[in-house]
Design a binder for these strands. Structure first.
Lengths: 134, 134
DNA sequence: TATTGTTATACTCTATAACTATA
DNA sequence: TATAGTTATAGAGTATAACAATA
């Protein structure tokens, strides 16, 4: 049995991973949270702000500030939803898609570096176990 | 390959676990952070505030407030270090040790419930993998 | 001079409440 | 009446800077 609590391990694993992904994203001018938002907004179907917020498990008021920041950086754009004008459709700009692609590769490399201490199969199992737990 | 990012999985796994450990600790009047501090202070050798902070990876100014809270609740006590009077030795009170024991069992049960969706061996592997990564 | 504990302060992240506009 | 976006605000949680006591 591990001597350290599971909560400690999860928290500090996330912190350590963040120490790798943070610098990996820096060249693209975004942080980990902005990358997460950009990722869901780059999904196949266009999303409203609320839908994007729900996919990430964050509040819609938090999403406002995230979209503001990405819009200021020219990475996403808002437009009214054609059928329901209460909603904003938020989509990556062309540059947003480029950044998303490059940043995704950078994050995947950071994840690989983070997981490098584990045999490949163990890393794969870790992902699958976390996926089931979440 | 998992579609969700590793950072997301680690963060939300921690959040979901916290939803179980939080209520599990409530009967003992402490939250997860206080439990973590009480745990390291309940270790074999008595620790100073700074040593406890370093074991948890938190700042020594943060530790002041944590020890204040636990002391108010009668779960730990400060006393000067005999050989170095700059230091506080912080140790659980008798009641602190009782609470620590009961709270530890409650947290372990919450962890088991959290991991229940995984086969035993996978849960064990998850712990070991996280332990290596941290 | 350096270290430990402390206080005051500030910053980040996030949510709640209240408003506007649309449905 | 309810929903989506927005704004203002407040609450965690944490760290940095400065100070006193001690080494």
């Amino acid at each position: 049995m591990s001597r350290r609590r599971l909560g400690y391990l999860l928290k500090h694993a996330g912190l350590r991973l963040g120490e790798l992904t943070g610098p990996a994203l820096e060249p693209y001018g975004i942080d980990g949270r902005e990358f997460a938002v950009l990722s869901v907004l780059g999904a196949r179907e266009p999303l409203s702000q609320l839908e994007a917020a729900q996919r990430l498990g964050i509040d819609r008021t938090t999403m406002v500030a995230m979209v503001d920041a990405l819009e200021r950086k020219g990475l996403v754009g808002r437009r009214p939803h054609p059928g329901d004008r209460r909603k904003n459709i938020v989509e990556p700009t062309e540059r947003g898609r480029e950044v998303l692609g490059a940043a995704t590769r950078a994050v995947e490399e950071a994840e690989e570096a983070f997981l490098a201490v584990l045999p490949d199969q163990d890393a794969q199992r870790l992902r699958e176990a976390l996926d089931r737990l979440v």
